[in-house]
Simulated assay, not measured.
Amino acid sequence: MAYKSLLCVLTDSDFLEAPLAQGMALAESQDAHLDVLTLGVDRSQNGYFYAGADALMMQEMLARARSESDDIEAKCRQLLQNSELRWACDSGVAQIADLGRHVAMRARFADLVVLPKPYGPNHGTELEPTIEAALFEGQAPVLMVPEDAKPITAPETICIGWNESAEALASTRAALPFLKAAKTVHVVVIDPPVHGPNRSDPGGLLSQFLSRHGVRVEVDVISKTQPRVSDCLLRHATDKSADMIVMGAYGHSRFREAILGGATRSMLENATMPVLMAH
């Protein structure tokens, strides 16, 4: 198994270098095709009040979005044109309320979507719905890349956040090309239920599944010593000098996580290393 169709969706010229470099490195190592979609986003949300909107204002916002898209596309082509990769770069304009449709249409046909970190100083509001559209409507695994992350193709150490959920299993399956190449994969189980079906061997079935794929697995059962599960997982990954974290995305609803917080949102906010997620 290998990634053969990679997709980068870029909406901000300030945050394109890390995900594009990661996509290019993966395309080379996996002999894959890299598709880059550059979108200029109209953030005015005029679609909600067209009747009272000024036509000149809408035209100005769309022209600004088109200019942003052209700028992002030019920077991407400059980085891609001298490579020997198989690649394509398309551009477009989308209103922020309609952004998910554009992203999902491309993500459905990608083995992996590489995206920038959605939260942080000066991060645009469109980065969050982009990653959610790829995960939910596109049903594609997403590799989130922080701004200062170096491209990785064969991470030596990977931590899997395992809670026996469908989301965690989907992300593990999607990460198999990385897991098989790693020297060590830690299946991290945080406070397993004392009355669960796998209480005597937490993470055992997953480690068996992975070992049959040639993955070198260790099971780490740790206590929840911090308020959030994501903090425990991130600290453990840091302690193990992990190059990547693999975890399920949005086990709770997006609305619940937006209001009350959750492991997915917290990880996307605080991760200092690439995180592969699937839903």
Rank of each mutant, 00 (worst) to 15 (best):
Y3D: 08
S5D: 11
L6I: 12
L6F: 06
L6M: 11
L10P: 00
F15G: 06
P19L: 14
A21V: 12
G23T: 13
A25T: 01
L26I: 08
D31I: 02
A32I: 13
H33E: 10
H33T: 14
D35N: 09
L37D: 07
L39D: 13
S44K: 04
S44T: 08
Q45Y: 13
Q45K: 14
G47Q: 07
G47V: 11
Y48R: 06
G52V: 05
A53P: 01
A53S: 14
D54H: 09
M58W: 01
L62T: 08
A63Y: 04
A65E: 00
A65H: 01
A65V: 03
S67E: 15
S67R: 15
S69E: 15
D70Y: 08
E73F: 01
R77Y: 01
Q78E: 11
N82G: 15
L85Y: 04
S91A: 10
A97S: 10
L99Q: 07
L99D: 07
R101L: 12
H102N: 07
H102A: 14
A107D: 04
R108T: 08
A110W: 13
D111K: 12
D111Q: 13
L115F: 06
P116D: 04
P118C: 14
G124K: 09
E126W: 05
E126D: 14
L127C: 03
L127N: 03
P129M: 00
T130S: 07
T130Q: 14
A134N: 05
A134C: 09
F136L: 13
A140H: 03
P141G: 05
L143H: 01
V145L: 12
V145G: 15
A149G: 01
P151D: 04
T157Q: 15
G161C: 10
N163T: 09
E164I: 00
A168H: 09
S171M: 00
S171I: 00
A174V: 06
L176H: 05
L176N: 07
F178R: 09
F178Y: 09
K183M: 01
P193K: 08
V194R: 10
H195Y: 03
N198P: 03
N198V: 02
N198Q: 13
R199D: 07
P202F: 08
P202C: 08
G203M: 08
G204A: 14
F209L: 14
F209D: 07
L210H: 06
L210N: 11
S211W: 01
R212S: 13
G214V: 04
V217D: 05
E218H: 14
T225C: 03
V229H: 04
S230D: 11
D231E: 12
C232T: 15
L234Y: 02
V246P: 14
M247K: 05
Y250H: 13
R256F: 15
E257C: 02
N270G: 01
T272F: 07
V275E: 02
A278G: 09
